[in-house]
């Protein structure tokens, strides 16, 4: 138990050091920024889908609200950016609480209601007074453009979400969530507060993408409703997390790194093919590799669980 903890931690430290060096190396900052962004999204999504088994098909809304809160606070009220980003996180929490009643829905109902809610938010945001939310053109943050600072903030968030994932998988909450997934009624009879445990995971899974949204808004310095509430962002999050393996910690990281790389490669060269590849990958994953790469490896060689999580 102790030794593999050490391995995991040293891998995290090395990866962090490398990512911290990216800005001084001749490497593309945006590329690595978005790689970290997707690691964060996929890892946070794993908390609610991998651990709890709820598929929020409108997951993008947490990110979207995060981008807008930061953009509006900075551009309209002059709130300093780091503080605005914290407010994005708070907004994510509030949103997750507002949608807490939907947690009593199961399976496809939860997925659809969440999806529809994201659509509602998108339409509402796009129709807010232009003086506030910029309408369908969005808001520019070019006056605050600080790619280096936002890069390092994203690095911090990425490390934090991976560590949160690791903590969760060993924590009481993590065990409780696994029990609930296995047999909800039995877990309740054992004194596990089912709805409270789910709510905690839901809030955790919401605050991270909202923070990521705030940071990303700072990094790109532009926010608009179509990008902020794009269904494709949910899709990519799901695919990246599934590709690596839901319910594991390394899975979503590996999936995000690999699939984002592939996506970026294809997108740059054959934009139309990108959608096709994403679609085919989803079908393939669901039907042939539901556990993802890491998950399948662990299933094949259970001993691996001691080294990778």
């Amino acid at each position: 138990m102790k030794t593999y903890r050490k391995t995991t931690l040293s891998v995290i430290v090395i990866a962090t050091l490398f990512l911290a060096m990216v800005p001084v190396l001749p490497l593309s900052k945006p590329y690595f920024f978005y790689m970290m962004f997707w690691i964060t999204m996929a890892s946070a999504f794993n908390i609610i889908y991998g651990f709890v088994g709820y598929l929020p098909f409108g997951y993008v809304m947490f990110y979207g609200v995060g981008t807008y809160v930061t953009a509006v606070l900075w551009s309209r009220l002059g709130v300093p950016l780091p503080l605005a980003i914290l407010c994005s996180g708070a907004a994510g929490l509030v949103l997750s609480l507002a949608f807490a009643p939907t947690l009593r829905l199961k399976g496809i109902y939860f997925a659809i209601v969440n999806f529809a809610s994201a659509m509602v938010l998108r339409i509402v945001v796009a129709n807010l007074p232009e003086a506030w939310a910029g309408g369908s053109f969005g808001i520019s943050l070019s006056g605050a453009y600080k790619p280096l600072a936002s890069y390092y903030l994203m690095l911090a968030l990425t490390v934090a979400s991976v560590v949160v994932g690791l903590w969760l998988s060993h924590s009481r909450l993590g065990i409780a969530l696994r029990c609930i997934r296995d047999d909800e009624a039995a877990a309740a009879v054992m004194g596990i507060n089912v709805s409270m445990s789910r709510l905690k995971a839901w809030m955790l899974a919401a605050v991270i993408p909202s923070l990521a949204g705030g940071i990303e808004a700072w990094f790109t310095a532009i926010v608009d409703p179509d990008t902020s509430f794009n269904l494709m962002s949910t899709a990519k999050t799901i695919v990246y997390a599934m590709f690596g393996g839901l319910g594991t910690i390394t899975g979503p990281i590996f999936g995000a790194v690999f699939m984002y790389g592939l996506d970026d490669f294809i997108w740059g060269r054959f934009p139309l093919l990108n959608l096709l590849v994403l679609g085919v990958t989803i079908i393939f994953l669901i039907l042939f590799l539901p556990r993802g790469v890491v998950g399948s490896l662990i299933q094949r060689w259970p001993g691996l669980r001691k080294i990778i999580e």
Partner: peptide, 22 residues
């Protein structure tokens, strides 16, 4: 699959992307 409803949902989401790109 473990959860056929969700699996079908995601599979056909993939199909929708394929059709749109075609």
């Amino acid at each position: 699959s473990e959860d056929p409803e969700i699996a079908s949902f995601l599979t056909f989401f993939g199909v929708s992307l394929v059709i749109t790109s075609l």
